[in-house]
Computed example of a mutant assay.
Amino acid sequence: MILCAGESLIDMVPQDGAFRPLAGGAVYNTAIALGRLGQPTGYLWPISRDPFGEQILRPLAEAGVSTDLCPRTDRLTTLALVTLTNGEARYSFYDEGSAGRMLMPDDIGPLPDSVRALFAGGISLVPDPCGATIEALIKAHHARLPVMIDPNIRPFFITDPDAYRARLSRLLPMADIVKMSADDLEWLHPDLSAEEAARRILASGPLLVLQTGGEAGAKAIWAGETVSAPAVRTTVADTIGAGDTFNAGVLASLDRQGILSKAGIAAITPAQIHAALTLGAEAASVTVSRPGANPPWAHEMPQSA
């Protein structure tokens, strides 16, 4: 199975003068998208015993995602209070001492042999102790398992940019696949163009650097010529969870092609990369066509997927 290690939380979204709680989190969204696409998937993140923890667990169970590796805790679920200013979302996090924030190495047991790939990223990489714990997990397993990382950088959540850039400088070379948006690349390397930044990351060790650009589609920078795939045209409700779903589509495609392994990614061809980017784009197009992070089920995907 593909193990997704990283944050889940509750987004408190404004609705009719009050707030509506919605389960979310970048890595959580990717896990659910993978499960809905029919891929064997596991999730690793502390889940609170509070009512919000139960709300987080339900969609995972419905998507067939294993939560056997999730430690349960009496610490509270992280809340992200969303406010809209001229249509732009701003977030206030209630995270100090939360279930996820306090993830420690002792909370993670041995990974079962069924784990064949590791996905990580999101804001779970930023604060400690959880950030250091996920870093240690990747360090312990990257030599054996293919690793995909999507930092999904949220500058408002980063209190020490230098420390986080240092963490990414350690993490990204341990990944086989790195996904970055143009905004991520600009934050990480403000002195470089997006192309230059992607190639600098590639030179540090990953085999594929995937750059996403919304309507501009996605491209893969790797040892060969750049491979591109267009975005799938659709009526956009919002873009919440689009990148997370794209990640799931890429991983699902690699798995279905039988190349989700260290050796498989090392020997990947342009056609295989294009197929992965295409499935990612097709899955993301379904998510953006409806409100919130609501990834497609396998039966909702285009026939080409």
Rank of each mutant, 00 (worst) to 15 (best):
279 L>H: 06
51 P>C: 10
60 L>P: 01
124 S>N: 08
280 G>C: 08
64 G>C: 10
154 R>K: 11
46 P>L: 09
285 S>L: 09
243 G>H: 02
191 D>F: 01
277 L>W: 06
9 L>F: 07
70 C>I: 04
68 D>K: 12
290 R>W: 12
190 P>L: 01
28 Y>R: 10
164 Y>S: 03
49 R>Q: 15
4 C>M: 04
193 S>G: 14
56 I>H: 08
227 V>H: 10
227 V>P: 10
171 L>D: 03
66 S>K: 01
279 L>P: 03
116 R>Q: 14
167 R>L: 11
43 Y>I: 06
240 I>Y: 00
206 P>Y: 05
127 P>E: 10
214 G>H: 08
24 G>R: 12
51 P>V: 06
78 T>G: 03
60 L>E: 04
27 V>P: 01
158 I>A: 12
40 P>Y: 00
173 P>E: 09
303 Q>E: 15
217 G>V: 08
10 I>R: 05
51 P>K: 09
163 A>N: 13
192 L>W: 04
99 A>E: 03
169 S>N: 15
151 P>S: 02
8 S>A: 15
153 I>W: 09
288 V>N: 02
162 D>N: 14
138 I>T: 11
264 G>M: 09
110 P>F: 00
127 P>W: 00
167 R>D: 10
225 E>H: 11
181 S>N: 02
21 P>C: 11
235 T>E: 14
86 N>K: 12
16 D>I: 05
275 A>I: 02
52 F>A: 05
102 M>S: 13
135 E>W: 00
52 F>R: 00
191 D>R: 13
9 L>D: 01
78 T>H: 02
34 L>Q: 02
103 L>S: 07
266 A>K: 14
125 L>G: 03
246 F>G: 04
224 G>Q: 06
5 A>E: 02
33 A>R: 00
3 L>Y: 05
163 A>M: 08
37 L>D: 02
48 S>E: 07
47 I>T: 02
47 I>Q: 02
89 A>D: 09
68 D>L: 11
258 G>C: 12
180 M>I: 07
112 P>D: 09
32 I>G: 06
16 D>Q: 15
245 T>R: 01
113 D>E: 15
